[in-house]
Every structure is written in C-alpha cells, then in structure tokens.
Design a protein around this nucleic acid. Sequence first.
DNA 1: GCAAAATCTTGAACTAGTTCAAGATAATTT
DNA 2: AAATTATCTTGAACTAGTTCAAGATTTTGC
Lengths: 191, 191
Amino acid sequence: MEDYHSILNNIARYVELSETEKEKFTSIIKTTRIKKRQFVIQPGYVCEYRNYILKGAVRVFYLDDQGKEHTVSIGIEDYYFADFTSLITQEPATHFAEALEDSIIFQMKYEDIEKLCAEIHGLSEYFRKITERAFASSRKRIVANIGKTSTQRYVEYAQKYPNIVNRVPQYVIASYLGISAEFLSKIRSRQ
Amino acid sequence: MEDYHSILNNIARYVELSETEKEKFTSIIKTTRIKKRQFVIQPGYVCEYRNYILKGAVRVFYLDDQGKEHTVSIGIEDYYFADFTSLITQEPATHFAEALEDSIIFQMKYEDIEKLCAEIHGLSEYFRKITERAFASSRKRIVANIGKTSTQRYVEYAQKYPNIVNRVPQYVIASYLGISAEFLSKIRSRQ
DNA sequence: GCAAAATCTTGAACTAGTTCAAGATAATTT
DNA sequence: AAATTATCTTGAACTAGTTCAAGATTTTGC
C-alpha cells in the first residue's frame, strides 16, 4: 500500500472528493521507481502516462536537429510531467523524460484518467484547474523567454526556485532557460 | 438574439451538452463589438472575462521595461483570449488585448464560468480539454522559441497560419515570434 | 482624392550570446 | 584512494539578431 497522502493533498487544494472517489482515483495509480539517468518517456513511444513525482527529480527535454538538448520542464516533488502533446493525442512522443535523481513516480494511464474525469465531476474540475494554472505559467515563461535577457531569466529563476537550482546540474538549468551552458557559467561568475 | 452557432459548435467538438445546458451557457455570454485598435484588456484592471472571437482579430501583448511590445497571442475567429494569469487569479492584468480589426467578441465572466463548470460536468470537461490543448501548444511554442532560429520560426508560422500572416501587420507577427520588426523584414526579403 | 498616420524596408554599427577547445573541479564507481 | 565519468569554467573567435536612422510604401480618415 503506497502513500497517496501527498497527491490527495494536492487534489484537496482545488476540490473535495468523497472517499469512494479518492479510492477510485488511487486505484488507477501505478507506482514506479526509477534510477538516476533512467528514461521514463522516449521519442517514438506513445506517452501512455500522466506522471506525478512523489520523490525525486525529473526533466523533460528534446533533441533538436543538431543534437542539442532543450529542457522543457524540470520537476521535483508534487509535480506532474509528461510529453503532453503525445499524452493528449496518444501519438508517439518527441521528447525524453529523464530522472535527475533516483525517484518514485505515480503513473496514471491516459485512458484511465479520461474515463474517471468523465465519471467524477470533481476530478474533471481538478484537472481543469491545474491545467489552467500550468497554461498560465507556460505563458509567463514565453513572455520571459521573449522579453528578458539571459541574465534576468537566470536571476529570476534562481530566486523563484533556489531548491531546484541547487539540486539540478547547471547545464540542465541552462538548457531550460535557453542559454548555452558556457554562457550560464559566465553569468554566474559575474554575479 | 445572437448567433451562438459557432461557439456551440466548438463545444460540440469535445462534449455533448443538453439543450438546457447550452441555454445556461449562452445565457452568461455578453456580446461586445470592438473597433480596430480598441483595448479590451488593460494593465491595472482585472481581466474579468474569458473572451471568444466570433468575428475579427485580437492580439494580447505586454510592454517590457524598455517599452517594447511582446505579443503573447494572436487570435482570429473561433479563438479564446484573455490575460489568463489575471483571469484565474482575478488580480490586475499585466497585458493588453487590442483589436486588430473591427471585431465581435463573446465575453463570459470568470465567476459565471466557474459556477457553471461546477454545475455542469460536461462544461467542466470542455474547458479541461481545450485548456489541455492550449497548454500543449504553448509548450510547443516554448520549444520553437528556444530551439529554432528566427527564420525557421517565421517560415513555420507562415506555413501553419497563412491567413493570420496575411491579415495581421508584420510587426505584430515579429513581436509574437520574438524577432525585431526590421529583422523580420530582412528575413522576408531573403525568402 | 488628399493629407496624415501607420507600416515596411534597407543599411551601417553594434552586442548579447554561441561555438569550440582545453583545462579545472567535483562526483561516482571500483 | 585511484580511476573514471560528469560537470563547470575560461578565453578567443565568431554570428545571429538588435538598434538607430531615414526613406519608401501602404492604409485610413475626412
């Protein structure tokens, strides 16, 4: 029996579910342990699961034509990740998800969530609300990428997520912020 | 009596609503006519409405510290827009929304949508699903901004949205793609 | 249909950030 | 604790894209 306390707590911040509903939800969860550097999602394979990080750290990234890595998301505890395009279309992924530490994740099959959202109104509301938040912060990131200098982006990110900056390799942060690893090093040396 | 055909059609692509539900939904819609260059959303004022474009074109943008414009979204018919951060937090907006043409928009109050989503399961599912799609395409845009050259971004955008490129001033496209208006002009002259 | 406003183009000087290369540190593994 | 692998730093040469300025073209309002 796993500890669903933290994910149910996350849900409770947005909606109230009955005990039966909570049980139905936790019954679709598969718990997976992954080792550092292990891939959870890989290009070519459909992203079957919506993943929740119970413990550890995971990043989602893709490789461009020149083989350069671009990190799309960095998540630690209490964070969802997926190749969302692949997840909602159920077409092959284009992104990797890689454990940055030994981690424990909860995996929920796309179809199971869809069925449960159709059945449980509160759950539909929950995913609607967290996706709205995710969308708004994605918009904020676009704004930051377009409108700010690399230095500003790094300083603000480090201020907002000091724990991530301390846990995760610098080249990952760089590729998340859209800066070369070398230039991020130079930014840091000037601070 | 307005023509809700197109917005109900949009909904029908994702979920089925009963006649009563449709009526409840259309009853919260306020129709507004806006003139070219008119602002619908302005920094300092809470973004009260989720807006749907029935006819016309609208962009959402913000001004950075140096007074430079950065376009966050460009929408034409059958497209939702808002300052989503302001909408979901109900705090003052930081963005402008400006009509690029004389337009007709449907406006739905944030609180009315929330209430109706809590009441009508299908509507909650609808907004969940369209927000998931919006989120996925927002992620794609981040990837494009970080990983591609200006030229690639422009060429791909023009290919995907030829109608927008033809309807909307070039400097708006440039500020959406994160390029200076001058450089976009040079890109186009080389094509 | 003319005047004014808005948009687009082009060139020259510049700069933020990249790329490449090589060495220095730090973290893991045996 | 030595060896290997992963990560970070620094410098020099380079380039994609910016900024500024001024003129050309198109659109809009009266």
